[in-house]
């Protein structure tokens, strides 16, 4: 049985605003210092979901596939260190970080080329462009059922995938026959820490590089909007600090201030 986990290399979401550089020529968000990218956090949780499945399904093969215009191989190799059997990197200048279609076409073609998958795991969305579209395009291209926002993934008798889907006010179970695509969300839990032995083994393993041209991915439709400007928004608020002798005093002062300014009104209709 094979699980494919789709990974995206993204700008570190914790990059401070002062380190971001906007390239309005190429319409790219770049990072000033030599700050390396990271694997999209939700995708890492996809790896975690696969690793948890392998705890019961011993023969599960975990293949991680990423498609991007360029890679930081050391960063991507974390997937091997935590226990993925294979890492496939599809690299091509056309794989813009923010346009979902070429990326999904490349991923789908790579999945087909390795002989398909029983389960495809994706993160719910990329922390950079937040489109969350790749899993849907993949489902369409691979003609697989799609289950989304899983906080728990389970495979029953090797044939069906069951998930617990997160809702705004609770959760709901869903299922589909394999092969299927599942997207995971942060409630699933963080990716485990790799052991050093696994890291060293991973360091010796090399990811498989596949050229997009060799995949026969087909031409993606030109459906993405064109980016015509990038800007760093200003949050112009001036913080008034409540001065008081102590914590309780500040609490009292805060209540009075909010009542005076009308931010809080007591006995108002809800």
């Amino acid at each position: 049985m094979r699980a494919v986990v789709c990974l995206k290399q993204v700008i570190d979401p914790l990059t401070p605003a002062t380190s971001l550089a906007l390239d309005v020529q190429d319409m790219k968000i770049r990072v000033r210092a030599a700050a390396p990218p990271v694997i999209n956090g939700f995708d890492e949780q996809g790896i975690e979901a696969a690793l948890r499945l392998r705890e019961t399904i011993r023969e599960l093969e975990i293949v991680c596939i990423a498609a991007s215009e360029r890679f930081n191989t050391d960063v991507m190799k974390r997937a091997l260190a935590v226990g993925a059997d294979q890492l496939i990197l599809v690299q091509d200048p056309s794989l813009d970080t923010w346009n979902s279609y070429p990326v999904a076409y490349a991923l789908a073609a790579a999945i087909r080329q390795i002989g398909g998958a029983d389960l495809v795991l994706c993160g719910r969305q990329g922390s950079d462009w937040d489109n969350g579209l790749v899993p849907y395009i993949l489902a369409d291209l691979l003609a697989m059922p799609l289950l989304t926002l899983a906080k728990r993934v389970n495979i029953a008798d090797g044939k069906r995938v069951e998930i617990e889907r997160v809702l705004a006010d609770g959760s709901m179970t869903m299922e589909a026959a394999l092969p299927a695509i599942v997207t995971v969300t942060s409630e699933l839990g963080a990716l485990r820490m790799p052991s050093v032995a696994a890291r060293l083994t991973a360091a010796r393993k090399q990811p498989r590089q596949i050229a997009l041209a060799d995949l026969g991915a087909g031409a993606p439709p030109a459906l993405a909007p064109e980016v015509i400007d990038l800007a760093i928004p200003v949050t112009g608020r001036n913080c008034t600090f409540i001065e008081a002798a102590d914590g309780p005093g500040a609490g009292v002062r805060l209540a009075e201030t909010l009542l005076e300014t009308g931010a809080v009104r007591l006995g108002m209709e809800r």
């Binding site: 570190d12 914790l14 605003a17 002062t18 380190s19 960063v75 485990r192």
Partner: peptide, 27 residues
């Protein structure tokens, strides 16, 4: 691979960004 939360987060940050203070607003 069993390290208390705060420490493991800081160490992951050292690995990823070369400093332990993940979430700082400064470069």
């Amino acid at each position: 691979g069993r390290v208390p939360d705060g420490i493991s987060g800081a160490m992951l940050s050292v690995e990823q960004r070369g400093h332990p203070w993940a979430g700082t607003r400064f470069s």
